[in-house]
Design a protein around this nucleic acid. Structure first.
Lengths: 246, 246
DNA sequence: ATAGTATAATTGTCCGACAAATGGACAGGT
DNA sequence: ACCTGTCCATTTGTCGGACAATTATACTAT
């Protein structure tokens, strides 16, 4: 005989939250629309304002609604890449993902991304990329600056591919890379220079729309990180640090 | 002169939430630990229980705490891949990412993942993979079954790589692929058969630890999806449907 | 020990209340 | 016209208390 399904009781705040979320996902509520005041929502759903507020906290945490800086009304938003990426990074870190797993993944996905960027980069994207490269070249004194520059370079490359899924896919990895690099970069002195060189080669390849060269140089670039970790004496099988909280 | 930073007022419920989240992220609170009752938390933080509850809703929505089925206490959890992937998929869909962007991304990352799997798959992983392949071969009558089988195959391949970052990276893509495939698969009759064949070739390559063949066949496999979309007459530049809500 | 029962603890939800901040209307000064 | 200051109705953030329903726990009888 078939066992019975456990009957599940959904608390009110959750049902309210999913009801509102559904309206956002099916575009009945569109980005920028502001939600009705809490008292009004409470009337419409026929629940207490406290219940509405708990539901709103859920939606807020999912970045489906946001309170604009110092304003009162809740506004419908589309969760941005970086918001969500933080969650993914958190999750990976809590699962004790290792440094090795992070750079292995980068070794796998970054070269094809660079190749794609070489094929599809338009003038504006190349301009952005150039800016990122020269920003790194100019400012990489502190570990934080250097690491942020590295991440921004990867972001610019992915953006140059013209495919909006790629930046979002790689973003969690970048957060973890940043967390790991901040520990490593000061212990591997030659790293900063090698990074600048590799960035310039990748940039040149993309400017020339040379997919093969872009893939190759990006490959070298990410393999350099592996080397950096090895040189710096960090145990690559230790878990990555959790990305800084927002 | 430098403009002033907007002074930001963090409401109490948010500060409580981040305080608890910090304890989870730094492992002071570990997975499986149960949180103190709400009244006790209210005392400790010296705020009202309502405030605590709003904070808990935030954490619950971030999957950092969960209340187990039919139980009362809140338990600390590590957010699982699939929970978070739903968010990422949601976000991408809300940003009107197109079908084309999804399969382009799959074309980029799946072949290297397959190659990696061929290099690192152990016996257990191969067994899982075999099971996934034969499950698809046995059950692909309804569109839902077929599509679920496709996604599970990709999951098994990524799992076989032994790198826990890869499954999580591809999961959001799979959710979107599933949402898009459910529309397409019934309009492209030969698709189901071609999928089975490609799966078997990828499986064979991984069993033989032949990275090159694995990459090649996985490449063919994902390019088949592109063809399927083109044949089915779906506009590949139309936005992907939002993944089904949980 | 097992099953059954009484009791305490805890959650989900409601009600009512109030200070503080915001948005908007309106008036006054330049 | 533009900037400033003032007043007022809204709305949020937070509090306190309350209660039914459910779960955990101690206790009892078999």
């Amino acid at each position: 005989m078939t066992a019975f399904e456990p009957i599940r009781f959904e608390p009110g705040y959750r049902r309210v939250a999913t009801a509102i979320a559904a309206r956002i996902l099916d575009r009945t509520l569109r980005e920028g629309d502001s939600l009705p005041p809490e008292t009004e929502l409470a009337e419409q759903f026929a629940v207490n304002r406290s219940t509405i507020r708990e539901a709103l906290r859920e939606l807020e945490s999912a970045d489906l609604v946001t309170r604009r800086r110092g304003t009162k009304r809740m506004v419908v938003t589309r969760p941005a890449a970086d918001q969500i990426a933080g969650r993914v990074g958190q999750s990976l870190a809590l699962h004790d993902v290792t440094v090795r797993e992070v750079w292995q993944t980068l070794e796998l996905i970054e070269p094809p991304i660079a190749a794609e960027a070489a094929l599809h980069a338009d003038a504006a994207a190349i301009e952005q990329l150039r800016a990122a490269v020269s920003r790194y070249a100019a400012d990489h004194e502190t570990a934080q600056q250097a690491v942020a520059g590295v991440a921004d370079f990867f972001r610019a490359v992915a953006a140059a591919s013209g495919n909006r899924v790629l930046p979002m896919t790689q973003e969690p990895l970048l957060l973890l890379l940043v967390a790991a690099l901040e520990v490593m970069i000061d212990r591997a002195p030659p790293a900063r220079g090698r990074i600048a060189v590799a960035q310039q080669h990748v940039l040149a390849a993309i400017e020339a729309h040379d997919a093969v060269a872009a893939r190759d140089w990006m490959g070298k670039h990410v393999r350099d990180f592996r080397r950096g970790f090895e040189i710096s004496g960090i145990d690559v099988d230790s878990p990555v640090p959790a990305p800084r909280r927002d």
